[in-house]
Amino acid sequence: MLRTAFALLLAAAATTVHAATATTGVAFVHGTGSQTNAYNDYWQPAMVNSVRQGLVNQANYVVINCDFNQYMWDSRAAGCLAGQLTSFINSRGITDLVVITHSNGGNVMRWIMSNPTYDSRYPAIISRIRWVNALAPSSAGTPLANAVIAGNVFENAVGWLLGYQSDAVRQQQTSWMAYYNQNNLYGTSGRPALPKGFWDVIGSDVETAVWDSDSYCGGYTLNVGLEITQAWLNSCSDGFIECSSAAAAGRVWFYDTARMAGGEPLSHNQSRRACFGLDTILRNDL
């Protein structure tokens, strides 16, 4: 209801001229890792191509490829993201931008929206954003990052998931994110609101029953790994992010079981894939 009310208020505030001439685009912003082909390797074509069907012009989309192994403010992270978003906005004449992020990508977007004077490109990007749909954002970090940076045996178990001891993993330690949220980022409790909406989609569990076809969506092996790592997290988690972290910034749009087909949960891997109707919800949101 809150989401619907926000959309109605936004529509009421827009002028008739803007409504008639707005050019909508969508940007897919990946999570931790250095991506060169996020379309195929991170999101996969089924997800991207389903979502962009919601656009009047389906060519108005961009899949970001940046080095998010770096700290969020790094030129290879937020700087790269700002560059690719600016090029997309300018080349396609985008005036209404919906950003879909996943995991640590939400932190990089929040850096841009929280620090408009840090980079001359940020204000123009912020002005065009309608809202950010944050899929399983690590807004308060994850205990898995704590374990990896501690360098214990757990590092070997989850290195495939986190990318080992990168700066992005250091950044996602819970104590580090608490500092950033208090001093550098907007949108969390007690802090100024973000200039545009930041809407959380929260994954609450991991299911890997070998006889259940739903457990294979997004890759059965990856889901098994997330079920293992879930043992180090609260019961409400997607195998990488605890629900409290995913809900820490902006506003909750929905929890997985409330909207997914069959009431299915979304593992951290499934929340970036066309699983259980997530792609259709994001498509209709455009």
Rank of each mutant, 00 (worst) to 15 (best):
N49K: 09
T101A: 10
N104W: 14
Q70P: 00
L55G: 05
F68H: 13
A82D: 09
Y61C: 01
I89M: 13
F88D: 00
D96E: 12
V48C: 05
Q53N: 14
L85Y: 11
Q53F: 01
I94W: 14
G79R: 09
C80R: 02
R92K: 14
V56A: 14
L97P: 08
P45D: 04
Q53R: 15
N65T: 07
A77C: 13
A59G: 15
Y39I: 03
R76C: 00
G105Y: 02
G54P: 11
L97Y: 09
I89H: 05
V98D: 09
P45M: 03
V62F: 03
M72L: 13
F88T: 00
A59I: 05
C66F: 04
L85V: 10
G83W: 01
Q53H: 10
C66N: 12
A78C: 05
I94E: 12
I89K: 09
Q53E: 14
G79V: 02
V56E: 08
N65M: 04
N60L: 02
A82H: 07
W43M: 01
R92N: 12
R76A: 10
V48Q: 07
M72D: 11
S103A: 10
Q58A: 06
L97V: 10
I100D: 05
T101E: 09
D67Q: 09
V99S: 08
Y39A: 02
R76H: 12
Y39P: 05
N104S: 14
A46L: 11
A78W: 04
F68K: 05
C66R: 07
N40M: 08
L85K: 12
V51S: 13
Q84E: 13
Y39W: 05
L85R: 13
Q84H: 02
I100G: 02
F88G: 00
G54Y: 04
C80V: 01
T86I: 03
M72E: 11
D74R: 12
Y61K: 08
C80L: 01
P45S: 02
G93F: 08
G54N: 08
L97H: 09
R76W: 01
N65L: 02
Y39R: 11
R52Q: 12
I100H: 06
N49S: 13
N57I: 09
A59E: 15
G83L: 02
Y42P: 04
Q70N: 15
Q70V: 00
N104V: 08
N69G: 06
R52T: 07
R52K: 15
N60G: 03
D74M: 04
A59P: 05
G93V: 08
Y71A: 10
Q44G: 00
Y71W: 15
S50R: 15
I89N: 07
V62K: 12
F88A: 00
S75H: 10
R92L: 00
T86E: 07
S75Y: 11
A46V: 14
P45Q: 06
D41V: 11
T101H: 05
Q44A: 12
S50Y: 12
